[in-house]
């Protein structure tokens, strides 16, 4: 199985990006081997629909669960339709998030936790 993690950088020591639709990178990680693929998120610059586009991208990567800080309603709907579970409130380094996931510390959420356009408000960089 594979896990998707929103990330500020392109390696396992990067911080988890608190935004889903407008994260810098999607890390697609095999939790057992820690092999990963870092996918740059070009939706970051989209004026609208970043969550929809990011959700579609993640859905094509065959991940079963997504670990992120916050997720809006459109992105959540896409992931839900694709049968992908979502964990929100995740922070720290990507590899720490993976370890916590393996220890069973995360509970998938039943709904989005922020409104549309949330990721546009904060200048994270």
């Amino acid at each position: 199985m594979k896990i998707g993690v929103t990330s500020r950088g392109d390696n396992l020591d990067s911080e988890v990006d608190p935004r889903f639709g407008r994260c810098k990178y999607f890390m697609v990680v095999d939790p057992d081997t820690l092999e990963f693929e870092a996918i740059e998120n070009f939706s970051l610059e989209a004026t609208s629909g970043a969550g929809v586009q990011s959700g579609q991208l993640v859905a094509t990567k065959g991940v079963e669960i997504v670990l992120t800080g916050n997720i809006g309603p459109n992105a959540f709907q896409v992931l839900q339709a694709a049968g992908i579970k979502v964990v929100t409130g995740v922070a720290g380094k990507v590899k720490e998030a993976i370890e916590k996931y393996k220890r069973g510390e995360f509970e998938p959420t039943e709904s989005s936790n922020v409104n549309s356009k949330f990721g546009m408000s904060g200048k994270e960089e």
Binding site: S43, S48, V52, Q56, A59, V78
Partner: peptide
């Protein structure tokens, strides 16, 4: 405007 999401078995 990313108003469509095409998933493997569904279009939203």
């Amino acid at each position: 405007y990313h108003a469509l999401a095409v998933l493997p078995q569904e279009v939203l």
